[in-house]
Design a protein around this nucleic acid. Sequence first.
DNA 1: GCATGATCATGC
DNA 2: GCATGATCATGC
Length: 493
Amino acid sequence: MNSERNLPYYDTNPKDIFRYSRELLGQNFVDVLSSVFEDDKLKERIDYYNDPKGKGTLGNLLEEHYFFYKPNSSPEPDFDKAGVELKATPYETTGKGIKAGERLVITMIPNAEPIETEFEGSHLEKKINKILMIWYHRIKNQKRTEHSIDFVNLYDIYSKVCAKDLKIILDDYRTIVNKIISGNAHKLSEGDTKYLGACTKGTNAAKSLKSQYYNKDIPAKRRAFSLKQSYMTYVLNNYVQPGLMNYDAIFSEEELKNGDFDKKVLDKINLYSGKDVYELCQLFSVPIDSKSKQINKTLVNRMLGVNTDNSEEFQKANIVIKTIRVQKNGNVKESMSFPKIKINEFINQEFENSYEYEFFETTRFLFVVFRENENGKYVLSGSKFWNMPIDELEEIGKLEWNNYKNKFIEGVNFNIKDLSCGKQIIENDLPKKTDTKIFHLRPHSSKSAYLINSKRYGNGSEADMDLLPNGDKMTHQCFWLNNNYISKIIEDI
DNA sequence: GCATGATCATGC
DNA sequence: GCATGATCATGC
C-alpha cells in the first residue's frame, strides 16, 4: 500500500526512516504543519491538535503530516515493511536534568483471547523491537503544538546496548503472562515488574472493566504493555543523550543470562544474613558512625556491589530500597515516610490520578530487614521485593486517602499544648494512624511551623509550612506507611 | 510501649 | 536551602 504513495523517504529501511526523522530536530509541531498547510486550514489543524479533549495526538500529527500515512491502531508496526514503530513521547526538565514525561505505551494486552506465552514472535515483540522515539520538550502551560522536537533515536531491543535490558524485559513479560494465565489479570500492577509494565489504559480504566479470558468470574481493567517511565528516563539519559546519568550496574550481561533478576538480587543480600551492622561495616570498610541514619542503606548498596547511591537496574525499574529495623519485641520500629504533600494540590485531585496512587502502583520496593538481637545489635535477617497489592490500594488505600482529603476540605482544627518540659506541640484532628490500616499522614519537615488564626507557632520558618484552604498553615505533611502494616509484610523474613 | 508530633543527617 | 530517608521524644 505504501508503494502507491510518493514518500519523501524510503519506508522499507529503518536507517532511511531515521535519517528523515532527524530533519525534525529543532522544529516544533506548528513548523511541521506549516510545511503542509496554509492559512485557515493550517489554523484548523493547529487547533485540532491542541484540543485536550480531541483525539489528535502529537504522534498522529507526525504520522499523518510528516510521514504521510494514516494513523491506525493495528497490531502491526507503523512502518510495517521496516518493522519500525513510531512513538512521539515527551520529556521534561527537572532541577536535576531531564526525565521522561511518561511511560511509553506499546500495545494493548488482549483480554478476549489467549495471551501469547512466548515473547518471541508475539505482537508485543513486533511493536517493541524497533521503536523510532521522537522526543519533544513538554513545558507546562505551553500549547502542545509549540513543543519543540529535540531528540530522535532508534531504539533497538536486540542491539548490544540493550542486551541486559532485554533479559529483564523477558523476565517481566513472563511475570505478566503468568499472572494473566493464572486468572489474575485484575491484580496486575505496574509495580509487579521492572522495565516492562502492564499499565492501565485510559482515564476511566476503572469504569471500563472487561471480562478476562482466563477467569470469567472477575472482570479486569484493560491494560497495555508499556515501558515504565523510570526506564524511559534511563533510555533518555543514557542511550539518547549518553553520559548524563551514571550508576553502577549490579549485574553483567553474563550474570543475567538466565534471567531471574529478583532471586539473584536476594541471593546477594542473603549471603550476609546473620551479620550485624557493626560486622558489615567492617566487611565493607564503611566508617562506623552511630549517628548516621543511612548506614544500613549504604550497606545494602555495598552488598549489591555498587558504589553509587542507587544501582542502574533499580533506577530503571523504579525499585526503592527501604531498610527496616525490627525491635526485639517484634515490632517494626518506625513507619516509613514518603515525599511531602502539597495540601492545595492534594485536595484538588481524585485518588486515581493522585501522586500517591501513581507512586504505590508503580513503585517496587526492596525491603531489607535488620532485626534486633538480645544484645541490642541489629542483625541482617533477609530481604524481599514487594509492591502494594492493587486491590488493597484501590479499596483501603483509597478510603484512607479520601478521609484525609475530606478532612482538609472540611477544615483542620488545632490544639496548642504546653508540655511540662517547656516545649509546645500543636495537635490536630486529622485522622490518626490508629484510624488507618495502610498509611497515615504526619508532619515531615525540618522544624514545626504553624499559622493559626494569624498567630505563628513552632520553631520553623515559612518554608516548613503548607497552606490550608482556610488560610491557616501547618507543618508540611507526608504519608507514612504504617509500621504495623509493614510488620505483616516482612514477618517471614 | 505506643501514638503522635518533632526533628535530624546527608547530599546536592 | 531543600528533598529525602530516617529517627527521636514526650505523654498517656
